[in-house]
Design a protein around this nucleic acid. Structure first.
Lengths: 257, 257
DNA sequence: CGCCATCTTGAGGTCTATCAATTTCAGTGG
DNA sequence: CCACTGAAATTGATAGACCTCAAGATGGCG
C-alpha cells in the first residue's frame, strides 16, 4: 500500500469527479495526524464526532458492554474511511482505537455537512463508501450468526486477503488474537485453537503475525466465502450513469439548488 | 402506523427539503405494489436491483448458506427503505422476502442514480438513512457476538418497540420464532425457551404474537439495551447546518478539534 | 538474563444445537 | 358442533461447541 493508499485515490475509483470535487476531497487529507498503537481517537458519546481517513496502519471501532466485555465492530485497514457511518447520529456510538501506529486525517463534521450540501457527486460517493462498509457488516453478521469458530476465522482471513489490493496469499495481520476474538465473537482461547485446527487442516501456515494461505480455494469452500460483497458497483456503470444524467440536466451542475 | 407511514414523511423528518426534492421523493412511492407473505421480491445475484420503500407490513433480507441454513440480516417494518445498502454493489447480495402481506414501492436503480446526481440534499438524506441502518446492524453484531440467547431476544423486543413510532409497550410481531431465530443467530427451539424464561422473569407476557413488555426498564438493564443508536442526528442540527452552509458559504472555520 | 505480553494447552462446566415427541391453535370441511 | 389438518410452539434428552479458569510455553526487548 505505502503512500499510494491515499484515500482520495481510493474514492476516485468509484466515479469520475470534477475538479471542484477533487479539491474538496483533498481537504479530507490536509490534516495528517499520527497516533500510537492503543490510542483512542474518539470516545463513545462524543457529540458530533469527526470521521477519519486512515492513511497508514490498522484501527478498529469497538463498543464496551457494562460487564466489561468488548465487541470489535469494524476493522479498518489503511485506505479506508473510519467512522463515516456515525456522521448520521447525534452522538458517537463506538470508540475508535488505533491497533498499530497510524496516520489518520480527522475531518470535522461541519465540513462534512458542507460537502454533503455542496456536491451531489461527493454525497453519492460517500453513500457508496458507506454501502460497501454495510456489505462487510452484513457478512460479519452471517459469519458470527451462522458459522462455527474455525469457519469464522477462515472467513476473516480471506476477507482481509481480498480487501488488500495486492494479489498475494501472504498477509500480515498486525493484531493479537484477543482483538480477533472480540471481532468474531469468540474467546481468544478459541481463536488460538481454531488457528491450530486450520494449520492441521493444511490450509494455513503462520510465522508470528504473518499468515500464508496454502489453499485459498479450499479455504473459501470450507467457510463458504464469496468475495463478491467486496466488489463495488463497477466504475464504468456508476460513472457513466452519473455523467449521463449530469450532462443531460445541465452541464457542471452538481451545485445544489 | 397505517397510511401515515409513508416513507416520504419519514425521510422528511431528517431535513427540510425543497419542493423539487419533495417531488423527486414522491416518485419513490408512485408505483405501489402488493405482495403476499412469503413472496420473494428480489433474489440474490440480481444485477442492478431496485430498492423498495415499504408502506405496509413486515419484510426481511436474508442470505442462504450452501448447507441450507438461513441468516436473516435485516428486518424491515413499514416506513422503512429496503435494500438501499445494496445500490452500491453490482449484484444483490441478499434476498428480499415479504414476511406478511405487504405494500411496497420498487424504485428503479437508474432513477436512483439520477436522484443521487441531481440533488445533494437527497443524496445526503439517503446517506443518513443508510447510516441509521448501519447503526442497527452494528447493534445486531453486538447482540449476536456478545450476548446470550435470552438477552438477544430481550434486546430484539426492545429494538422493535423503540423502532415503532407509538409509545406503547404492547407490540405485535407478526413473524414466527424460526425467523426470529434466524435473525438472532439461534435455533427456533432456543427462541421458544428464551421466551419462556422472559415470562418466568416476569418481564414479558404474550398472547399469540402480541407481546407486552411488563417492565421495559428492567428488561433494558437486563440486556444492556440503549436506544440511542436509533436516534438520528436531530432534525434541527442537521437542517440548520445544511441551511447554514447552503446560504452563506463562509464557513466559520471552527478549529479542528 | 529477566520481564512482559502473547500464545498454547488442558480440564471442567455452561450454553446452545439437534432430534424427536407432544401440545396448541387456527383453519377447514363434514 | 366437532373431528381433521398442518403450521407453529413447547418440552425433554442428548451431544457438541465454546467459555472460563489456570498453568505453562514462547518470544521480543530492555
Amino acid at each position: 500500500m505505502s503512500d499510494s493508499s491515499c484515500v482520495v485515490e481510493q474514492l476516485e475509483t468509484f466515479a469520475s469527479l470534477s475538479e471542484g470535487d477533487k479539491q474538496l476531497l483533498a481537504e479530507l487529507e490536509r490534516d495528517i495526524q499520527c497516533y500510537p498503537a492503543g490510542q483512542i481517537l474518539r470516545t463513545v458519546d462524543q457529540r458530533h464526532p469527526p470521521f477519519y481517513t486512515l492513511r497508514r496502519g490498522w484501527a478498529c471501532s469497538t463498543r464496551l458492554l457494562p460487564d466489561g466485555q468488548r465487541q470489535v465492530l469494524e476493522i479498518f485497514i489503511d485506505g479506508q474511511v473510519m467512522g463515516l457511518s456515525e456522521m448520521g447520529l447525534e452522538y458517537a456510538q463506538t470508540e475508535l482505537i488505533a491497533l498499530t501506529d497510524i496516520e489518520a486525517c480527522p475531518f470535522p463534521p461541519r465540513s462534512f455537512m458542507r460537502v454533503l450540501s455542496e456536491s451531489a457527486s461527493l454525497s453519492s460517493l460517500f453513500f457508496m463508501t458507506l454501502a460497501r462498509d454495510h456489505a462487510m457488516l452484513r457478512e460479519r453478521i452471517m459469519n458470527i450468526g451462522k458459522r462455527r469458530g474455525v469457519e469464522r476465522l477462515a472467513h476473516f482471513l480471506l476477507e482481509v486477503r481480498f480487501r488488500r489490493a495486492e494479489d498475494s496469499n501472504e498477509i500480515e495481520i498486525p493484531i493479537n488474537q484477543t482483538v480477533i476474538g472480540d471481532a468474531l465473537g469468540m474467546s481468544s482461547v478459541h481463536v488460538s485453537r481454531s488457528f491450530s485446527l486450520l494449520k492441521k487442516m493444511e490450509l494455513l501456515e503462520t510465522d508470528g503475525r504473518l499468515f500464508r494461505l496454502l489453499d485459498p480455494d479450499a479455504m473459501a469452500r470450507f467457510c463458504s466465502f464469496c468475495p463478491k460483497y467486496l466488489v463495488p458497483r463497477s466504475n464504468h456503470a456508476l460513472s457513466t450513469e452519473l455523467l449521463d444524467f449530469r450532462h443531460r440536466m445541465s452541464p457542471a451542475s452538481e451545485a445544489v439548488q
